[in-house]
Simulated assay, not measured.
Amino acid sequence: MVAHELRTPLTAVGGWAAALRNERLDPGQRAHALHAIERNVALQARIIEDIVDLARIAHGTLSLRLGAVDLHDVVVAAVEATTTVADARGVSLDLEATSTCPRLWADAARLRQAVDNLVVNAIKHSPPGGAVRVRLEATAGEAWIEVSDEGCGIAPELLPHVFERYRQGEGARSGLGLGLAIVREVVQLHHGRVDASSPGVGRGARFTIVLPAGAAAAARHR
């Protein structure tokens, strides 16, 4: 299963590289081929990074670099970074974020990774023309990030297992599941929780990260 996921982007890179040897490609076709190669290299890098992080988690060596974090900036950066992925799939990406979120005592890079993974997961399982919505809301002691899509949904029997490592669904939500497993571990390291919900197959899904904020966040990391 891991070998298959690693081989898929490599096969795509090889195919597009071979196409570039064709001198009859026009500039537009060459640009398309180069973009496809870049996209698949980025996908390969993400898969490798996820595997390395899961190894760190398994050995208890995944650590946090804590500091004062503006969660609004983290979420905006994650959405901006995944815009090209959404564009390539023909999926719209909408952000609704409060700008008055209290600061968190957290690892900004790891939280960004968690949000990235949720957004990419939603895009991956959305049909062309679909929409992914990201919301950030907060109170004085808690902040939550919600990522929802209109995609293939999650079967009821799979919902309790979506955050398990290497878990695969049949048809809906297929794949390694590395990204969601990492989301759960990163959120739990921040003393938060992440939940998944779906009305059923073909009816989209919603993932929600809940984190302690303000004084509550600082107290939990003492």
Rank of each mutant, 00 (worst) to 15 (best):
A88Q: 10
W144F: 14
A122H: 08
C101L: 07
T84D: 11
E80K: 08
D149I: 05
A122P: 08
L104K: 00
N117W: 04
D116A: 03
A140N: 04
L104R: 00
L104G: 03
P102Q: 05
V132R: 04
A138I: 07
D107R: 06
I123C: 11
D70N: 12
R89S: 13
V134N: 08
I145D: 01
D73E: 14
T98F: 04
T100M: 10
D107M: 11
D70T: 02
R133G: 12
R135T: 15
D70R: 02
S148L: 11
S92G: 14
T139Q: 01
A81R: 09
C152I: 12
W105H: 14
L93F: 13
V115D: 07
T98R: 10
V147G: 05
A78Q: 01
E137R: 13
L71H: 01
C101Q: 11
D107F: 13
Q113T: 14
T84R: 06
L136T: 11
L71P: 01
T139I: 04
T139M: 01
G151N: 03
R135Y: 09
V134I: 15
R89Q: 14
E96H: 12
V74F: 05
G141R: 14
V120Q: 08
V91W: 06
G151K: 01
A122W: 10
G67L: 08
V134Y: 09
C152P: 00
V74H: 01
G67N: 06
L111K: 06
Q113D: 07
R103M: 14
G151P: 03
A78E: 00
A131F: 02
W105F: 15
D107S: 13
R103E: 15
A68I: 02
G130D: 09
R89V: 09
H125W: 12
A86H: 01
V132D: 10
C101R: 04
A114M: 04
A138Q: 01
E137W: 04
V74S: 02
I123L: 09
P102W: 08
V75Q: 02
V75H: 02
R110G: 03
G151W: 03
A97W: 06
P128T: 15
L118R: 02
C101T: 15
T139A: 08
A131G: 08
E150Y: 01
P127N: 14
V74P: 00
E80W: 01
A77D: 13
H125S: 10
V119I: 15
L136Q: 02
E142P: 02
A122E: 10
N117T: 08
A86L: 03
C152F: 05
G129L: 13
A140Q: 11
A138L: 04
S99C: 03
T82I: 00
T139W: 01
P127H: 15
R133H: 15
D94Y: 05
